[in-house]
Design a protein around this nucleic acid. Structure first.
Lengths: 341, 341
DNA sequence: TTGTACGCGTTATCAA
DNA sequence: TTGATAACGCGTACAA
């Protein structure tokens, strides 16, 4: 291992003080032009690279943002990360990524490590099975700026960036209703994640607005993954034929894929026997045998907005708690049987 | 902003020295059981969180790995990241993620920042347009462990983990040949990325082994993205009908998707008029109108192996330069017209 | 078992 | 414009 060159060594090589070197390297005004030039050149020649860790310690600023992702392979999140990265990069921040694999304990440990690594702020999407909000409160209390994205926790004083979930779920359901469907089921997400209940609410609202009954047997708790949707749909299909739903609103696209699998395995056709709609415009949605009607979430934009808000908080260009809503777009395809593409 | 609690403050609150606190908190043997308990409790009560930055400065170890990703939205990479994260997490390392968006300059800047952030090691996949290897050499010379994954640079003393690209390309091409195809084209990747030339080599080798001529007009420089494959295929389709390829080996799946689009737009059928095979088993490959025959890269495993090797280097459990090869698996589907699924 | 002095590499502050 | 000193929060080495 080659010994690392420090500012002090550059200084000694030039017979000047460390401070002058520091000033020259950081483009401070009060240093002679010639001195600066000499410093820059020798530093380069000696292969000097500043130590950000030392810098961070004294400045109490790491220029680093902690990003907590529940499931890195769900195509929505890499898109968000790209948005976050884009804005952060422009603003001179790096990101430390933590993957929680939807596990609440890993999430807690991730947050604590990020905080002890002195990140300047935290971008967070809760894992599927969060139990309580104590960690989040502690983070806020410690004065670490925190912005939720996608899966938010409201009412604890943190900003959040998300889709207008309720409105989108309402639009989807209404779309089905306006095309004549009456028995419409909902495969919901984990009840302790906000977007699950919000989407459920939108579904309910649409039914109510059109005078349709909300039937408990048509609302099945699923989850965010394919297997969850699969199991939930199987359960719906155990209903006697006349009670079966003619259409299904799934909490997200993976769940919809699972449900589609269950429908096909039951020998039924999509959308002829059962119509289905999803939520998130997964990269696969358009490629299914029956392309999936869904909501296109602008994941990249959610990432950008969340990062922007967080950086504004960090740099104190903003201090108010905001609820930023990125509009979703209804994408009509074949799976709903409404004459889409 | 709430003032942060330091070890010194915990010490003062207890009327003991900072060192005892430090020892208790780090599970050192030489501290009285009662003292330890008191320290642990007060630390918890006061909301003490250790400052990793200060710790890193004195220990010269950050427990952080820098991961450079060329394109976070290409489904292969999130899988790799998941593998990296999994192994790192187990070993007590965090990852700083840098996205280069396939840009060589962003890559250089990313590497420099990661080094100055004192990462313990670097995991790197080169961007599409890398020009020279100077940065990599500097990293190695500074003694920062470096492991390439997927897109490697060989011969500069860094370990690398990749697919057996040549062999897989050979297998794919041979598969086509053994099913009677003779005029087989290749849509290649950027020539300065190693996997491009390696895959091309495998294609050539298969032709040679079966006594087929390698024709220049059937090898078109494309790229890793859909648009690249689309343009390359359009070019191939300008050939007079009798010169047109009956089958195409694309450098990766996205390029294959682009090529498929061009084929369909030309009014041709897959695989009846033009058969095609890809490389990487993109999540969409199985969902196309003509499901794509391809090579399944075990991205998760590549990530795991790369992280493992890097951590072994960091912890000096290993020091030799290794070329780790993760085998790929031929997945036969409909697009090659060889009676696949 | 516990404490003291010092150093990690950098920047802020104040004096020259 | 430049330099000396202290400080950021922690751990090592040694002494008590």
């Amino acid at each position: 291992m080659v010994r690392k060159v420090t500012a002090k060594e550059v200084a000694r090589a030039l017979g000047i003080s460390t401070m002058t070197v520091s000033r020259a390297l950081n483009n401070r005004p009060n240093v002679d032009a010639k001195t600066r030039e000499k410093v820059l050149e020798t530093a380069r020649k000696m292969g000097y690279i500043p130590n950000h860790i030392a810098k961070s310690l004294v400045l109490r600023k790491t220029n680093t943002i902690g990003v907590v992702v529940p499931e890195i392979t769900h195509s929505f999140f890499p898109e968000v990360v790209r948005g976050i990265e884009e804005v952060s990069y422009q603003a001179g921040y790096h990101i430390i990524l933590s993957h929680t694999a939807e596990d609440a304990n890993r999430e807690i440990s991730a947050i604590e490590t990020l905080v002890s690594k002195q990140v300047d702020g935290l971008l967070l999407s809760t894992s599927q099975n969060v139990a309580d909000y104590e960690v989040y409160r502690q983070v806020i209390q410690r004065g670490v700026p925190l912005v939720f994205y996608d899966r938010c926790v409201k009412g604890i004083g943190a900003s959040c960036v998300s889709l207008d979930d309720a409105e989108c779920a309402r639009k989807l359901t209404e779309h089905l209703i306006s095309h004549g469907y009456q028995r419409i089921a909902h495969i919901s997400g984990p009840p302790n994640v906000l977007i699950s209940t919000t989407r459920l609410e939108g579904y309910r609202q649409a039914l109510a607005e059109h005078g349709l009954p909300v039937e408990d047997e048509l609302i099945v708790e699923g989850g965010f993954h394919e297997g969850d949707g699969y199991r939930a749909m199987q359960q719906l299909l155990t209903l006697p034929p006349e009670k079966r739903p003619r259409a299904v609103v799934a909490v997200n696209d993976p769940a919809a894929f699972g449900a589609m699998k269950a429908i096909r395995e039951a020998g039924l056709r999509i959308p002829d026997d059962v119509a289905i709609v999803g939520f998130s415009d997964d990269i696969r949605a358009n490629l299914m045998e029956a392309p999936l009607t869904t909501i296109r979430q602008n994941a990249y934009e959610i990432g950008r907005r969340a990062a922007r808000k967080l950086i504004d908080l960090i740099e104190e260009k903003s201090s108010q708690v905001e609820e930023i809503i990125v509009p979703g777009e209804l994408v009509i395809r074949r799976s709903c049987g409404c004459n889409g593409e």
